[in-house]
Each structure stands twice: as structure tokens, then as C-alpha cells.
């Protein structure tokens, strides 16, 4: 991470190389995400950047000074786990950076028009105890 970050993306926490937190905003006028800031948590393994970091949204309650909801999206479970090809072991490329991942997630939100969670969200959220990387998501559609 060097220099300035792209608009709508900011570092919240980056003291160590295990966990970073980033805030992202959707810049265009998508009514689903207007006036909201979302918090992403990056967890880096020892093999980063050869292997992908774990990236998920984390929630900070509305009552807090910096409320951070989980954005609604057909590829984002309500516990913050993101189903995005480039974060899977197969879709990851070591040339990706925290910045580029944030930008990809930003544009994934920007392009979305569906006000819905992934199918089977409530089951997934209550039963899944695996780590996101080990889940075999079915990347059902096109270019997310």
C-alpha cells in the first residue's frame, strides 16, 4: 500500500500484517448503498500474497458512533461473508492488492440492483462454521 487510496476507500486499521480493516463507500447514486459506509476486514495468512487473504464485511451496530452495516447484495451473506471469485483460491492472483480487492468489491456493489441476500442465506449463516476460503461457492453468474 503506497501513496493515496482511491476515492471512497480508506484504511481504518493496519498496524500489523495479520489483520487490516478498510472502510469503503459506494460513490455513485445507487439507492441500495447511499449514505452508508461499510467495513471490510482483511485477514492475511503467512502465504499472502501468494494465497488470498480472507476478506469479509464486519458489522458495527447502528447505535455506535461509526455504524457499519453489512451491505445487501445477492453475493454477500448477512454475516458478512462475500462470495467473490477473485477471493477464492482458484480465482486469486498474487498481483492483487488490498487496494484492488477493495476496488473490485466497490464496483461489485456499484453494479448491483437486486435488493436481496444469496439464496439459503439464513441456513448458511446459522450452520456454516467453515472459513470462507474453504467454502466451495458456486459462482452462479457472470462477472462479479
Amino acid at each position: 500500500m503506497q501513496g493515496h487510496l482511491p476515492p471512497g476507500i480508506s484504511i481504518v486499521k493496519s498496524e500489523n500484517f495479520e489483520e487490516w480493516q478498510m472502510d469503503i463507500k459506494v460513490l455513485d447514486a445507487n439507492p441500495l448503498y447511499q449514505n452508508e459506509i461499510y467495513r471490510l476486514k482483511f485477514t492475511f495468512g503467512s502465504k499472502y500474497p501468494i494465497e488470498p487473504p480472507e476478506v469479509q464485511f464486519i458489522e458495527i451496530p447502528r447505535s455506535s458512533e461509526t455504524p457499519r452495516p453489512i451491505p445487501i447484495h445477492p453475493h454477500i451473506y448477512s454475516n458478512g461473508i462475500i462470495c467473490l471469485d477473485l477471493l477464492s483460491s482458484a480465482g486469486w492472483s498474487p498481483v492483487q492488492t488490498v487496494e484492488s480487492v477493495c476496488m473490485s468489491i466497490q464496483s461489485m456493489l456499484t453494479a448491483n440492483t437486486r435488493n436481496e441476500r444469496p439464496p439459503g442465506d439464513s441456513d448458511f449463516v446459522s450452520y456454516n462454521r467453515r472459513r470462507p476460503r474453504d467454502i466451495n461457492f458456486f459462482y452462479d453468474d457472470d462477472n462479479v
Binding site: G3, H4, P6, S100, S104, N143
Partner: peptide, 17 residues
């Protein structure tokens, strides 16, 4: 400079897509 850098990055992401 910053704008150029960001545009370049966006462009790279789009190109990859």
C-alpha cells in the same frame, strides 16, 4: 497524478474483467 493513478487502476481491473 492521483486521478491518473486511480483511472489506471480502474482500467486494469476492467481489463482483467
Amino acid at each position: 497524478d492521483m486521478t491518473i493513478r486511480h483511472l489506471r487502476q480502474r482500467n486494469e481491473i476492467l481489463e482483467e474483467a
